[in-house]
C-alpha cells in the first residue's frame, strides 16, 4: 500500500500519452521562460551584434541575425518571456474573473444571473479578434493592455462554463444536503461546488493558454500587441515577413516557437481532459 503512493502520482501519465508529452514540453518551455534571459548569448534588442541577415548555423549566431543585426536566437529565447507572460496573465485573469463571476451568477441566480449572462452574450456576439482590434484601438497597445484585452475576450466564455457547472452541481444531492443542513451559501459554493468544477476549469485554462497565445501573436502581428523593441514572436513575424524572400529563416524560427508553445498547451489540455474528465476516464 505504501509503495503505491508514488505510483498513483505517476498514474495519470500512464493514462494519457498526451499528458506525458505535454508535461515534458511544458517543462522545457518553463526552463526557457525562467532561464532564457541568462541563456541567451546577446541582449535581445542590441543592434549590430552581427552583420544584418547573417544566415543561420554559420558563424557565432546559431539562428542568424535579423535586419538590424540582432541575434535571432536571443530574440526568440527572450520572446518566450513576453509571449508567455501575456498569455499566462490573460489566461489567469480570464479564468479567475470569468470563473468567479459565472459561478456567482449561477449560484445566486435571479437578476444578477440575467444581467451577467446578457453582458456575456453581448460580448460573445462579436468575433474575438474584431472586438480585440477595436478595444486596442481605444486603450492602446502594450503588454498590459494586450493581456487585458485577451482576458476580456475569453472571460465571458469561462463565465458560461462556471455558471453551467454550478447549475448542474446545484442539482446534486450533496449541495441540496448541505443547504438543508443550513450551511451558509457562500461556504457551499467554496467547499462543494468549487472543487467539483476545478478539473473542468483546469482543462479549459490550458486551452485558453493555447488560444491566448495564438491570439497574442495575431495581435502582435497586426502591430497591436507587445511593442518593439521588446521581442514577441508575433511581432518578430510581423517584421520578418518583409524579408521572407531573402531571409526565410527569420520567419521560420518565431513561427516554430509559437507552434511549439501552442502545441504544448494543447497537449496539456488533451492530457488533463483524459485524466480529469470522468466520462473519458471510464472508457
Amino acid at each position: 500500500m505504501r509503495a503505491t503512493g508514488y505510483r498513483s502520482l505517476l498514474l495519470p501519465f500512464h493514462r494519457s500519452v498526451e499528458l506525458s508529452i505535454g508535461t515534458v514540453m511544458f517543462v522545457v518551455l518553463m526552463l526557457l521562460f525562467i532561464l532564457g534571459p541568462s541563456l541567451a548569448p546577446h541582449p535581445p534588442s542590441q543592434m549590430g551584434v552581427g552583420e544584418p541577415f547573417a544566415p543561420a548555423l554559420e558563424g557565432n549566431h546559431l539562428l542568424g541575425t535579423d535586419e538590424l543585426g540582432r541575434d535571432v536566437l536571443s530574440r526568440v529565447v527572450h520572446g518566450t518571456r513576453y509571449s508567455l507572460l501575456v498569455t499566462l496573465a490573460s489566461a489567469l485573469m480570464a479564468t479567475v474573473v470569468g470563473g468567479l463571476v459565472g459561478m456567482l451568477a449561477g449560484f445566486f441566480g435571479g437578476w444578477l444571473d440575467i444581467v451577467v449572462m446578457r453582458i456575456a452574450d453581448l460580448m460573445l456576439s462579436f468575433p474575438g479578434l474584431l472586438l480585440a482590434i477595436v478595444i486596442v484601438a481605444i486603450i492602446g497597445p502594450g503588454i498590459t493592455n494586450t493581456a487585458i484585452v485577451i482576458s476580456a475576450v475569453y472571460a465571458p466564455r469561462v463565465s458560461r462554463i462556471g455558471r453551467g457547472a454550478v447549475l448542474s452541481a446545484k442539482e446534486n444531492d450533496y449541495v441540496t444536503a448541505a443547504n438543508a443542513l443550513g450551511v451558509r451559501s457562500l461556504r457551499v459554493l467554496l467547499r462543494h461546488v468549487l472543487p467539483n468544477i476545478l478539473p473542468t476549469l483546469a482543462v479549459y485554462m490550458s486551452l485558453l493558454l493555447a488560444y491566448g497565445l495564438l491570439f497574442e501573436s495575431s495581435l502582435s502581428f497586426l502591430g497591436l500587441g507587445v511593442q518593439p523593441p521588446l521581442p514577441s514572436w508575433g511581432g518578430m513575424l510581423r517584421s520578418a515577413r518583409t524579408f521572407i524572400q531573402i531571409a526565410p529563416g527569420l520567419s521560420i524560427w518565431p513561427g516554430l516557437a509559437i507552434m511549439y508553445a501552442v502545441l504544448t498547451f494543447f497537449f496539456l489540455a488533451e492530457g488533463l481532459r483524459a485524466v480529469l474528465d470522468p466520462r473519458l476516464r471510464d472508457r
Binding site: L214, S217, S251, G255, M259, Y260, V262, F266
Partner: peptide
C-alpha cells in the same frame, strides 16, 4: 490515430498569418 491526433493539434497550433505568408512565398516562387 496517434499520427492523426498529432497532425490535427499541429494544424490548430499554426498561426494562420504564418501559414498564409509561407503559402504566398511558395506560390510566388
Amino acid at each position: 490515430s496517434i499520427l492523426l491526433q498529432t497532425f490535427s493539434l499541429v494544424g490548430l497550433s499554426l498561426p494562420t498569418f504564418w501559414t498564409g505568408t509561407i503559402l504566398l512565398l511558395v506560390v510566388t516562387f
